[in-house]
Write a protein that binds this DNA or RNA. Structure first.
Lengths: 233, 233
DNA sequence: ACCTGAACACCGTTCAAGT
DNA sequence: ACCTGAACACCGTTCAAGT
């Protein structure tokens, strides 16, 4: 008889069946997200990972959308507080940049963030940080409040644009961009004079220069647009 | 023998099996979208509707995403040209409002528009219209070009926010809003002073007043933010 | 070339039944 | 109360085979 030091205790090598809790489910979901993307964060896959059946997860999580929202708030914890140096606009741009960068790593999460706005503690921290920076910049409170929404919508939507269905997403997006570029360059001067005249600049700019311009544009607008703005006669 | 004027020619009542073309597929897709929402616009369902197997559709459509993009451009045709009366800002707000309203009727389409930017003829028309209005307002060309992108991103994202999974989406969204409202109202004055101070205004405003403020804010920003804006020393 | 049946590899969610 | 096997009702996409 040969020595057989560690007999398998379960079917697989998994060290121990982890306790089934909301936390263990979310933690597993984050691990699967990091390793294989949100597409694989499914009830069935998570159940398999946790050595149980999909029905068991419904004791702790209402549905897939809620699960994805929980995952998002978890990742929001990795977006640090505002940096200490620089003027308030710079700092705001960097905070928003960190948020966007996190979402860019998981664009499908951005997509779901758009639909299921998070309300977890990490999300509140982000809002507080942005409000503090706008306050520091002297932006009137009402405009700051609505402005935070606009800034987060912009950042989230920018990241969501890069979401793809499956791994062939990059190729597909390239083809879409080519199609749009082709359409813009071939726009008739007669029917689409403005597009024809601006073809170059319409397609110009790096993603980061556009993002930076977007944030500055938003801030300039937020600073000087009052919520009701009744049309002066 | 009783008279039997119209014997069924096929299994179902369907008058005639329509020819399978890209157009008939897209037309069927639009019909299903209008009747039951984008969730039902699936390859399998369309195949059933067209009396064939799902595999047949792949001769005319690359994949589901491309199909949804084609549907979007089709609906874009219902967004009319710019109205003739009013000042350029008003008119721009109304054009963008019509675009948003169309997407609001099919928010899941907005979601997919965010990922798969359309490049069809109707989309080009919309861009041309917006560029013309910005030009009329004296907005510098480069800012107008990038601004159109920002305006469309805002409108699309606003509509996409209302996308839901299934018919229980409204209830789910209400619960999310309640959760956020609760979190905002219970924010600690010590850890989240700005949120606590601005709780009321953070949650205020009707969707339409916020949308209107958003467009005006964007326009104000676009008008006065130059693309490169090198930091002056 | 165009079309298709059948298969592959998945999904979310519910429910009756167990402990 | 918590957990689960099994089922229901779907998906997208591919491929070999037909016409």
């Amino acid at each position: 008889m040969t020595a057989r030091p560690t007999p398998p205790r379960s079917r697989r090598e998994r060290p121990a069946k982890p306790a089934l809790t909301r936390e263990s489910i979310v933690a597993t979901a984050v691990a699967v997200l990091r390793a294989e993307g949100l597409e694989k964060v499914t009830m069935r896959r998570l159940a398999q990972e946790l050595d149980t059946g999909p029905a068991s997860l419904y004791v702790y999580v209402r549905n897939t959308a809620e699960l994805h929202a929980a995952v998002l708030d978890e990742l929001l914890g990795t977006v640090g507080p505002a940096p200490a140096d620089g003027d308030w606009r710079d700092r705001l741009e960097r905070v928003l940049g960190a948020y966007t960068a996190m979402l860019m790593e998981h664009p499908s999460l951005a997509r779901s963030a758009l639909t299921a706005r998070p309300s977890g503690p990490h999300y509140l921290n982000l809002i507080e940080t942005l409000l503090a920076l706008l306050d520091e910049g002297g932006v009137p409170p009402a405009q700051a409040a609505w402005g935070v929404d606009l800034l987060l919508l912009f950042a989230t939507a920018t990241a969501a644009e890069h979401a793809g269905r499956g791994s062939s997403a990059d190729r597909a997006r390239q083809e879409e961009w080519d199609a749009l570029a082709h359409a813009v360059h071939n726009a008739s001067e007669r029917t689409h004079p403005h597009i024809a005249a601006l073809a170059g600049v319409l397609l110009s700019g790096t993603p980061s220069s556009r993002r930076s311009w977007g944030v500055r544009t938003l801030l300039n607008g937020i600073e000087r647009t009052a919520p009701s703005d009744p049309t002066p006669s």
